[in-house]
Write a protein that binds this DNA or RNA. Structure first.
Length: 218
DNA sequence: GCGACAG
DNA sequence: ATCTTGTCGC
């Protein structure tokens, strides 16, 4: 698929913050997409210590979740890992992988936060704004926000709150498992984000999209 | 100043 | 993320 590769990249935290505050204005928090026929999962792995980043993208049909396409890309790691700036580390390689796809996904589930971020611009938002593809943030652990305890059954959820603002949701994708931290990325509302994550996590805690991408990136 | 801190 | 053995529980 076509991916705009031209983009400026920060060399330090200060520049990264400026980019986040600039691009966050472009984030759309409401649903802005049509029928979802293809859902993609993206993930990154690091090799050679920390010097090389390898990203993987897997496209699944929706709602049957069958693998239809995939791609991997490797490139020098572009940014160190700093909480709050994960996207600057993973997005470059992910864009390379997306460019190799034959099937353009209608929705992307990211292995990280969306709006549930200190500056409301997590990995999912960043990838969404740069590609204009609807995205959802589905992280395995918490970055920021507080929430109440939630029931053990699959599908139960509680709002994730920061400074009195609902920034996402804590969602139990399977009975008795640790919950997932879900938030909208770009062009996807929180209710829809919860719905899609739940429908993609049909059998395990992690969405099938993330599981497939994770397997490919290793 | 003391913790917290996506992957 | 990655480095790594055994071990608790269904």
């Amino acid at each position: 698929m076509k991916v705009h590769q031209e983009r400026g990249w920060p060399n330090n935290a200060e520049e990264a913050i400026a980019i986040q505050q600039q691009l966050r204005k472009q984030v759309i928090t409401t649903d802005d997409f049509g029928t979802v026929k293809y859902v993609a999962g993206v993930d990154a792995a690091y090799i050679e210590g920390d010097s090389i980043t390898r990203a993987a993208v897997v496209v699944l049909s929706f709602p049957d979740l069958q693998v239809k396409d995939s791609a991997i890309a490797t490139r020098p790691t572009s940014f160190p890992y700093v909480p709050g700036f994960l996207s600057f580390r993973e997005v470059p390689a992910v864009l390379d992988a997306l460019a190799k796809l034959s099937i353009a996904p209608d929705l992307i589930l990211c292995d990280g936060q969306g709006i549930a971020h200190p500056h409301r611009f997590g990995l999912a938002c960043h990838l969404g704004v740069l590609t204009e593809i609807p995205t959802i943030g589905a992280a395995k652990t918490l970055l920021i926000g507080k929430h109440a305890e939630l029931p053990l059954e699959r599908g139960s959820w509680q709002p994730l709150i920061d400074n009195g603002e609902t920034i996402g949701a804590v969602l139990r994708t399977q009975k008795g498992v640790k919950p997932m931290y879900v938030s909208g990325g770009h062009r996807v509302s929180l209710p829809s984000a919860i719905d899609y994550v739940l429908r993609c996590a049909a059998k395990y805690r992690l969405p099938e999209t993330t599981r497939m991408a994770d397997r490919l990136s290793r």
